[in-house]
Simulated scan of single mutants.
Amino acid sequence: MLINCVVYEDGSKLADIPVSRIGEYLSLPRCFVWVALNDASQEELLELQQAFDLHPLAVEDAQNGHQRPKVEEYGDSLFVVLHLLDADADAPRTAMEVGELDVFVGRNYVVSVRNRSSHGFVEVRERCQREPELLRNGPGFVLYALMDAVVDRYFPAIDAFDVELEGIEERIFTQGGARENIQGLYGLKQRLTVLKHAVAPLLEGANKLHGGRVPQLCVGTQEYFRDVLDHLNRINGSIDAMRDTIGIAIQANLSMVTIADGEVTKRLAAWAAIFAVCTAFVGIWGMNFEQMPELKWRYGYAMALGLIVSICGYLYYRFRRAGWV
């Protein structure tokens, strides 16, 4: 679905145009066309391929979707893939939906194709139009603005994960929550891995736009891509730190389970020892031999019960002091 098709000249919006008139403006000096689509059909991509002479391999990637984040050069044009992560910040346990933003950038055009995501980029277009002095840098600045918006959306997810992890850490030493804690930790680790797959490959791509042989499209905007790279490094560092913390938390949780099992084992062993004494004495007096002194003694039964109760009580006292019962 076509969202916008706008012509910009010298940093200012010139006109909204239909796709059929794109060719009229591509040859104008200091002009570029920005086309935005959502869940584009194959026919729409083919029409734009013909209008902008997009590389067929890049178009094929956009049609297939589910690409790894990357920055690829095709002659004097760029093809950039970004992952869009849609998660409810108020419900961090909700599974993350992974969308995709494919961006074709050339000397006089930008084509952004959003797939499987409900969160648009209206604010990016508004930001660019509020800063005409920066928009004069052309498609390179638009690419930066799109990448910056996508990367900035990762920060709320990191903050939500951090809050969730702190909550689980507080519950680790609470009895009875071991299973829930393990489920929460592994669920959080899975969502962090999704975010890691969105950030780590993009680090290499963003570095291409900042240092070394910078593509001609990005000349003049390197410092802006350096800012994106800095944000990606911060997010990547936070992900690695949280994954390490999750590993430690899992080990601590398992240790608490082992300790709890040990406490149960000690209690069972203590009660088993107490009842073993009862069983031993009862077994002795239950052998039914004819010559047993206690059988004909008037107080023999009471003495036997008293002896059993006394020894069991003494054992209970000692186990109680040792913390076993």
Results as ranks from 00 to 15, higher is better:
Pro139Asp: 10
Gln175Phe: 15
Gln183Glu: 12
Glu166Cys: 00
Ala178Val: 15
Met147Asn: 08
Arg179Gly: 02
Leu146Asp: 06
Asp159Pro: 01
Phe141Trp: 12
Tyr154Asn: 02
Asp159Gln: 09
Ala178Gln: 01
Glu164Met: 06
Gly167Gln: 08
Glu170Tyr: 02
Glu170Pro: 02
Val151Tyr: 06
Met147Pro: 05
Leu165Lys: 08
Glu166Leu: 09
Gly167Glu: 13
Glu169Thr: 11
Ala157Phe: 06
Phe173Gly: 00
Pro156Tyr: 13
Phe161Lys: 08
Tyr154Asp: 02
Val150Lys: 03
Met147Asp: 01
Gly187Glu: 04
Ala145Ile: 05
Phe155Val: 07
Arg179Ser: 11
Gly138Val: 14
Pro139Lys: 12
Tyr154Ile: 07
Ala149Ser: 08
Phe173Pro: 00
Ala178Thr: 15
Thr174Val: 14
Leu146Gly: 09
Arg191Pro: 07
Asn181Gly: 07
Ile182Tyr: 14
Ala157Glu: 02
Gly167His: 06
Arg171Gly: 06
Ala145His: 02
Asn137Gly: 09
Glu180Cys: 03
Pro139Phe: 09
Gly138Gln: 12
Gln190Met: 11
Asp162Ile: 03
Leu146Met: 12
Lys189Cys: 04
Glu180Leu: 10
Arg191Lys: 15
Ala149Leu: 01
Leu188Thr: 10
Glu170Trp: 01
Tyr144Asn: 05
Gln190Val: 07
Arg179Met: 03
Val150Thr: 13
Tyr144Arg: 04
Phe173Val: 05
Ile182Val: 14
Gly177Met: 11
Asp159Arg: 03
Leu143Ala: 07
Gly176Glu: 10
Ala160Cys: 13
Ala178Trp: 14
Val142Leu: 10
Asp152Leu: 07
Gln175Ile: 15
Met147Ile: 04
Glu164Phe: 07
Pro139Gly: 13
Tyr144Cys: 07
Tyr154Gly: 05
Asp159Ala: 11
Arg191Gln: 15
Ile172Val: 14
Phe161Cys: 11
Ile158Ala: 04
Gly177Ile: 15
Arg179Val: 15
Glu170Ser: 04
Arg171Leu: 09
Ile168Pro: 00
Leu165Asn: 10
Gly184Arg: 00
Arg179Asn: 05
Gly140Phe: 01
Gln175Ala: 15
Pro156Gly: 09
Ala157Met: 09
Tyr144Leu: 04
Ala145Met: 04
Leu185Arg: 01
Asp159Phe: 13
Val163Gln: 11
Glu180Met: 07
Phe155Gln: 01
Val163Asp: 14
Ala149Asn: 05
Val151Cys: 05
Glu164Leu: 11
